[in-house]
């Protein structure tokens, strides 16, 4: 049976957060806030009647872009 979209989103965000441990504290806090916002966004999209695929795709896009930017910030600080 297909997992509910919110569960998939929360798993995806948890996966992203699990690799956040080595981040400097300031970036970790910013990243955690972003992930929290993505979960809230997914919940509101579900409440607005959006289909699972739209929700998963939206969150995956936003998370992927953010992770790429995060790497750039870390590189800029090295």
């Amino acid at each position: 049976m297909e997992k509910p979209s919110l569960e998939v989103v929360e798993e995806e965000v948890a996966r992203a957060l699990s690799v956040a441990d080595p981040l400097p504290n300031d970036l970790k806090a910013v990243f955690e806030r972003h992930c929290d916002n993505l979960v809230k966004l997914a919940r509101s999209l579900e409440a607005a009647g959006m289909d699972s695929e739209t929700i998963r795709s939206a969150v995956a896009t936003l998370l992927k872009t953010y992770e790429s930017d995060l790497l750039k910030v870390i590189e800029a600080r090295l």
Partner: peptide, 19 residues
């Protein structure tokens, strides 16, 4: 939905600022 998207925009701006 739009409010939550706006929060995502702000957290994206915070990351940009963190650099």
């Amino acid at each position: 939905v739009l409010v939550n998207f706006s929060k995502v925009v702000v957290s994206q701006m915070e990351l940009r600022q963190a650099a």
